[in-house]
Amino acid sequence: MHDLIASPFLEQHLLVRPGTRGGLLLPEPRYEELRHLDRAAPVPSWLADSTREQWPDLDLAGRQAAEVLLVREPSAWGYSRASWEINLGCNLACKQCYLGLKVNSGMPLGDKLNCLKIMAEAGVLWLQITGGEPTIDRDFMKSYAAAFDLGMMLTISTNGTLLWRENLLNLFRERPPYRVTVSMYGASKASYDELTQRDGAWDLFVQGMNAARRARLPLRMSIIVTEDNAHEEQAMIALCESWDVEYNVFTNMTPTIYGGGEVLTAQSKEHLRMRKQFTGCNAGHTFFHTDPHGLVSICKIGRDDQISLPNEGIQGLARLGAIADRLMLRTGGCSGCQLSGACTVCRPLAKHYQEAKAPLASYCQHGQKAKVNA
């Protein structure tokens, strides 16, 4: 088990510690020194001094390098982050969920582990494991442990309803996550159970949050504001603050990954916000997304022209950059738009809204202007 990871990250080299934020920039000569260090040797004095300053509770003096340090090899592929849907199944049935159908299917464990090895070989240092609800997957614990042991900093995106389970808490104690991001769907049993369409969901959420806080997991809340719980927005914020947990508030609903608009009815019209201007992203170039069947896309939204990791292996990623550039072109209903330079959504997301026949005001400046002038 390692306490530290030394890894290339884009054009730099980092020293990071699982379970914590922050880290150290490593000059390339220092990274190469660690890379070629005899694993039976003690850690260099400069490393012990640097880590003690960054993490006072971590004393490496005299400890064997193999005992505390994992050094990631350079990658020719240039990826640094990825997200992985381990499944699409869920123990809740939230009205606003962009995944649409909750199908609990995916790869056998062997293929999951192989895909994780490919992600590590591609250079992925930060990996988000999501779903559906990832913790209900039968292979979650083995997959999480494998990803950790490969030297990835792990974020778990969860509804939190199972975080009270001792086997999960033991896993997170032994192999600390970088972050646990919990979606929050209400501040009372009535609103929470209504939005998630599951009796008793609120009770499980509170039980999970109490256990996660006692375990001092690195929590971040995603407050989801919808028509059902909009009246509790401030109460949800107050609850996060009383727990001393950081949070983000999300108010804009999106169509399903299949282009379905049925979930848009959950939108609180009073909370519909104009997004910030879209200025580009690294999807497909330094980041990618993998679905439960090992199909890689540029991101969670732009799922066209997927690449099968189980069938093509890492060589398939060579096509991803060109796919990303093509998917970002303003085509279809966005062709010739004179406002495209200041658009607030990327082309793949605009396509989803158009397929869902969503109101123009929910995603487009033209609709917003018409709304203002009405």
Rank of each mutant, 00 (worst) to 15 (best):
R326S: 05
Y79W: 07
Y178I: 09
A238D: 09
M153R: 10
N87S: 14
R173A: 15
R179N: 15
D57F: 10
M1P: 15
R138L: 12
L195R: 00
R273S: 07
R179D: 14
A48G: 06
F287C: 07
R72P: 05
L127C: 13
Q96R: 00
I307K: 05
L10K: 04
A350W: 01
G89L: 08
M119L: 13
V345F: 10
E11C: 11
A318N: 12
L163P: 12
D49C: 04
P218G: 15
T181L: 10
T256D: 04
G123L: 06
W126P: 08
R81L: 12
I323Q: 01
E166P: 02
S222R: 14
W126S: 12
S143L: 09
T265H: 00
T254E: 01
R21N: 14
L47P: 00
A235H: 07
A145Q: 14
L88H: 09
Y79G: 08
S75Q: 05
G280S: 12
Y144N: 05
P8W: 06
G316K: 02
M152P: 04
A120T: 06
T161Y: 02
T196C: 10
I237L: 05
N252H: 07
C90S: 03
M141E: 15
G259F: 07
Q64R: 15
G261K: 03
T130I: 14
N114P: 04
S83I: 13
G259S: 13
E241Y: 13
S7Y: 08
K357G: 13
K189Q: 08
L125E: 11
C94A: 04
A342Q: 11
I156A: 08
D244K: 14
A235L: 02
S188Q: 01
V103M: 11
G336K: 00
C364N: 06
L329W: 00
R303I: 01
T290M: 15
Q128M: 13
R63Q: 12
L70R: 14
F140H: 03
R198I: 07
L125C: 10
I323E: 00
I237F: 06
K369D: 07
Q54P: 06
A201C: 09
H36F: 12
P255D: 13
K371S: 09
E28H: 13
A322Y: 01
G110D: 14
T135D: 01
T279M: 08
E312V: 03
P74Q: 01
L24H: 03
Y247H: 15
L168T: 03
S308Y: 04
N167C: 12
L169C: 10
C94I: 03
N248V: 02
I257H: 09
G151R: 11
P29S: 02
Q267S: 06
Q207K: 13
D3M: 11
T279N: 11
L109Y: 04
T20F: 12
H289M: 12
L60C: 06
M119V: 06
R72F: 01
W77Q: 06
A230H: 13
R347S: 04
E312C: 05
T344V: 07
P292E: 03
L99R: 11
A215Q: 15
